[in-house]
Design a protein around this nucleic acid. Structure first.
Lengths: 226, 226
DNA sequence: TCGCTTCGTTTTGTATACAAACGGGTCGGA
DNA sequence: TCCGACCCGTTTGTATACAAAACGAAGCGA
């Protein structure tokens, strides 16, 4: 990981995910190489990787731009996410170690205090632990790769909706329900609870997004085609 | 697409998918660059792309190898595939143009004759048309990207199980049922029929794979970790 | 005889130099 | 004045040269 291409990739990814590089920003190889202190060759590799992961859009023009985050693209993302996570919840309900998800349920139950004392970052860290537990329960590297792809884009979208303590508290309750359902091996409930959670999450993000773009002021171009 | 990196990518992908480059084959940059008549720079890009798509495994050692196709990896792949395709079938049942899937159902109904007169390649072309219709009904570029990733690996796995006319005829009947369910907007049936089809397909591939590896003769190493 | 260290070869990773292609701008003509 | 073609600058795509690191083998020592 000490390779220049990797560090360039990590740096760019971080900046895109943190909205320091805004959607639509053109990514000139020469300029970025200079700014990141690497040669064009490893930078090209980093850019190619970001393009394949969907964070960089190379389809328009020759110079790549940071890919767009529109209401349409987020809706599409959540459609895929629902397919993956509901089935993941079902599978986990069959295979998991109940103790793991029992412990997670308890931690989600006490999340309101966590939010008060340590803030939203600590809560997101807890969600990451939940994701890891889900991955471990699945025991499927291919499936995990697909989930990671979704989580990557989700991390960027989530930055818009951060800092809504009320929503996060409800999110914690939804996660708690998912955890108990998985712990109890209740396949149907695990899937349904996941659907409920994702719908609430999507709604929140879309509302925040709409509030941010007053109307007639599209954030940065549209989604793919018509 | 006239770029050297793209042609190298396409050539390598073709050879891997057609089992001309067998799983485990080491991919030396110098040798491949010479063989394909391109420089190492574009070849590296091609190799990186294949690695990100999962056709090349760079985790073991420094030199990448063609990724493995084991019973375990195929089972994992199908677990992901089921998550994606069952939900895709549900969504398509809600959104599709009935005429499209009605026409497809008719063509799957007459697939037995197609298999007799034109062979399995023509049948696979029909399946590809079905996939395209599904993508179009979804109208979701992100979802399609995930499906394409699965289809890529599936194409390689399928090469093992090809040329079982009896199975293909049954596959056609399963597809016909899926098409009619989608056409009729029957969400539950579309999903269930897809599950049935995928299970049958997986079983066939695993049986063929087992018959090919007589025992104690692992095709080419194991899957990821333990 | 087994294990460790060390050296050599091979392979990847990076930098730079060069060629080609796209875009913008300007000049000329209708 | 508007349209079109051509030219030039910038940017990407490719090739090669160099550096660093990893694998393997051989030799030494216990």
């Amino acid at each position: 990981m000490a390779r220049a291409s990797d560090s360039a990739y990590k740096a760019l990814r971080e900046q895109i995910l943190h909205w320091q590089l805004l959607p639509g920003t053109p990514l000139s190889e020469i300029e970025l190489a200079e700014r990141l202190g690497v040669s064009r060759t490893p930078l090209r590799a980093a850019l190619a990787r970001l393009a394949l992961e969907g964070l960089v859009d190379t389809s328009r023009g020759r110079t790549g731009v940071v890919s767009d985050v529109s209401a349409a693209s987020i809706t599409d993302l959540f459609e895929l996410r629902e397919a993956l996570e509901t089935q993941a919840a079902r599978l986990a309900a069959r295979r998991c170690d109940p103790n793991v998800f029992d412990a997670l349920a308890a931690r989600f139950a006490s999340a309101p205090e966590l939010l008060l004392t340590e803030g939203s970052d600590a809560y997101y860290a807890l969600v990451t632990e939940f994701d890891a537990a889900l991955d471990h329960a699945l025991g499927n590297a291919v499936y995990r790769g697909a989930l990671d792809g979704v989580r990557l884009h989700l991390a960027r979208a989530r930055r818009i909706a951060t800092a809504n303590p009320d929503r996060l508290a409800r999110s914690a309750e939804e996660h708690r329900l998912i955890c108990t359902a998985i712990r109890d091996g209740d396949v149907a409930l695990a899937a349904s609870a996941t659907t409920v959670h994702l719908n609430a999450s999507l709604t929140t993000i879309l509302e925040t997004l709409e509030a941010r773009t007053p109307a007639g002021h599209p954030a940065s171009g549209q989604k793919g085609s018509a």
